[in-house]
């Protein structure tokens, strides 16, 4: 691998590895809460932080982290007050953050590092060894908090009202989550840029959401997908000369489209097979019922009828009742006849 011979590419790949792992681990809670745009809003706020860092000649990354965390806490407090809707609060952050960043950066003295593009779109190859150390610290901190509080964060994201009713510290957990998002934003700034940060948090989770059966599975899957697209996107961008951020995000979206298509195809096939099986019994001489001559077999929450050695479960579809085949011990593949299946 010639690409690994360059120090800047080694650092770039390490950075993308950390980002790919961390962004979905936090993003999945945002997806769960349907608050996908929080990452975007905090990304914009981080730009103001960057600008302040440049203006005061302190470390832009540190200043961005402080600004994003403050913004995160602020937005949760506003949401908790309940007066302004979270939506409006987000919008104010969005526009205030980016406007503040652009205006402040324009005030910076000539000669300072005011490369706006690098922050907006990422500049992964400029990652320094010191940056890597900061990134590693953020990665460890975020993963540790998710490991420690993940179940609580899930609880609050899943049903905030229940969490509040039974006495979970909802506000504190929301602030923790927002702070995690802020940290992730700053971590991802170099790799994907402030404008595309949300994509790496959300898209892998959206893929996982399509195929996972449990939340835990979805979390691991999203992290895996994030890791793969992040590292391979960075590698690809080296060979194609395209910006790393856009390449990674396009790759993630490609994965999403492929998986979504595969899921849709599988469902269509299952539906077709189901309909075909229904046709076999379209010419069924009668509707099963008490005393129809077939043995009734209770099966979970419904009754099957033994029809020449296989079990029939009445099932209502758009075109009328047909019969699903239910094995003697198999769980029903779909819901049997319920409302109006007369």
């Amino acid at each position: 691998m010639e690409i690994l011979e360059y120090g800047f590419m080694q650092r770039a790949l390490l950075a993308s590895l950390m980002v790919g792992l961390v962004a979905p681990a936090v993003g999945i809670f945002l997806v769960q809460r349907r608050l996908s745009l929080l990452g975007d809003g905090l990304g914009h706020v981080a730009l103001t932080g960057v600008a302040i860092g440049v203006l005061t000649s302190t470390a832009p990354v540190g200043a961005a982290l402080v600004a994003a965390v403050l913004g995160a806490v602020l937005i949760e407090l506003v949401r908790a007050r309940g007066r302004t809707s979270g939506d409006v609060a987000l919008a104010v952050l969005f526009y205030g953050g980016i406007a503040g960043g652009v205006v402040l950066l324009s005030l910076a003295p000539r000669g300072s590092a005011t490369n706006l593009d690098a922050y907006l779109f990422g500049a992964i190859t400029t990652t320094s060894a010191e940056d890597l150390a900061v990134f590693a610290a953020i990665t460890l901190a975020v993963l540790a908090v998710v490991g420690l509080l993940g179940q609580r964060l899930y609880a609050v994201s899943d049903d905030e009202e229940y969490a509040r009713a039974v006495g979970l510290p909802v506000l504190a957990l929301n602030i923790v989550l927002a702070a995690l998002v802020a940290s992730t934003v700053v971590l991802s700034m170099r790799v994907v840029g402030l404008l595309l940060i949300s994509a790496l948090m959300i898209v892998p989770s959206a893929v996982a959401q399509l195929v996972a059966r449990s939340f835990r599975q979805a979390l691991y899957l999203a992290c895996g997908i994030g890791l793969v697209v992040s590292v391979s996107g960075t590698t690809a961008s080296y060979y194609t000369g395209t910006p790393s951020g856009g390449t990674i995000v396009l790759l993630a979206i490609a994965v999403f489209l492929v998986v979504a298509a595969a899921v849709a195809l599988r469902e269509a096939t299952a539906r077709r097979r189901h309909r075909r099986r229904g046709d076999v019994h379209a010419a069924h001489p009668h509707e099963h019922g008490p005393g129809c001559g077939h043995q009734a077999v209770p099966h979970g929450d419904h009754v099957d009828y033994d029809h020449d050695g296989h079990l029939h479960a009445p099932h209502l579809t758009g075109t009328g009742v047909h019969y699903d085949e239910h094995g003697t011990d198999a769980a029903p593949a779909d819901r049997p006849a319920t409302e109006g299946a007369r």
Partner: peptide
């Protein structure tokens, strides 16, 4: 119904019922 956008199992949803008793950590 339960509202979360990400799939969760029966076990995961019911486990939330235990969490409040366990404090934060």
């Amino acid at each position: 119904t339960v509202s979360g956008a990400v799939p969760a199992t029966v076990r995961e949803v019911v486990s939330v019922g235990r969490l409040a008793r366990l404090g934060l950590f």
